[in-house]
Design a protein around this nucleic acid. Structure first.
Lengths: 196, 196
DNA sequence: CGCAGTTCATGCACCGAGTGCAAGTTGCAC
DNA sequence: GTGCAACTTGCACTCGGTGCATGAACTGCG
């Protein structure tokens, strides 16, 4: 990862959060489809073209991770003790991440509630999170590709299934209970031990 | 379901298959993005507007089920013996469906191979298939909503994970082996018995 | 057959998402 | 300051998708 000068880096993150906040505020008010990219850039005070420098598309503004998140994932993954079963690692990392990102989880949930048209969109949390998880797991677990993907995608399914059942009034701990129940209900057989 | 006159019904299915075949042929040749809707309608000999009468969008032409499929699902689901565990029912229905739709499974696979841009698209088989499955399961299995969704989405994950690992040279039975292995590997605990 | 009602195909105008390009602006290093 | 690289912006353009109004084809019925 190339670190550009701190000033540029800081401004980029500021702009990212500015646009992100403006977009999600509008979307919670009117719903995803009723907010055009022009609305977002007008509210954020940037040009239309710049929006697409920051986000690959309108959906990305909802689902992309915060610029700081990758470092957070790395920390959470590195904290997992050696020998812990992969399934437990996935559960704990997921709980750790949703805890740290609780505010954004709630925000995303509000956007989804206001935007029934997003129902068909399977993306819940950042896809890039799962890419990072898969990379980590490939190096730490002793499974063939198919079983590795099955395990990770099963964890993904637990999260994606739990979210719509989550009553936001219960707070982030309410989601955690659903996740724990889900991880207990659907467990890949023979939870292998991680190697290193 | 309102049955319109048999002639109209027949022509609609003919047109559907005509457009579908033209679209998938072009997409296997050039890839999803490189085929525009105008290309498709030109190849199929219909108007642009008519295309959108048949398909909700360009993606739908790849992922929508054949007009005959819903009846097939209903048959497969009705054939499941009373008392069979839900997980087994899901496995067998999935194998039955992929058997009957083997040619389209292979075709879809070719389109995906030619279209890396479709990677992020989580849709594998028809979403509507899973809607039908969920409705059936809700009436036959004795599970709360969360566990029901977890079970069905786990089955969905097994399919969606198996497909990319599937070597088409092994034919549809190769996919079936992957599915059986996947269903065995990730099994929701306490496989409840279906009630009626 | 002829007639009315419905379904379907089509053309047209329009909106919004997303991209390529070229020019301008801003921060950075020396 | 000067030169370089990163970033922003405006513009023109392509393409996916929709609303609407019109016309053609099929339907059932007298």
């Amino acid at each position: 990862m190339v670190v550009s000068s701190p000033v540029r880096e800081r401004k980029k993150r500021e702009t990212w959060r500015l646009v992100h906040a403006a977009a999600l505020r509008l979307m919670t008010e009117r719903g995803f489809d009723a907010v055009s990219v022009d609305d977002i850039v007008a509210a954020a005070g940037i040009s239309r073209r710049t929006f697409f420098n920051y986000f690959a598309g309108k959906e990305s503004v909802v689902f992309d991770p915060d610029p700081d998140d990758p470092a957070l994932w790395a920390t959470l993954l590195a904290e997992r003790p050696a020998g812990e079963p992969l399934w437990s690692s996935l559960r704990e990392v997921l709980i750790g991440y949703t805890t740290a990102a609780a505010d954004r989880m709630l925000l995303q949930r509000r956007v989804r509630l206001a935007s029934p048209e997003l129902a068909g969109c399977s993306r819940e949390l950042a896809d890039q999170f799962w890419v990072a998880v898969r990379e980590w797991a490939a190096g730490h677990a002793d499974l063939d590709g198919l079983r590795l993907d099955l395990t990770i995608n099963a964890a993904r399914t637990v999260l994606n299934t739990s979210c719509p059942h989550w009553d936001a009034d219960t707070g982030i701990t309410g989601l955690h209970e659903l996740l724990r129940a889900g991880f207990a209900f659907v467990t890949p057989s023979l939870p292998e031990r991680i190697t290193s």
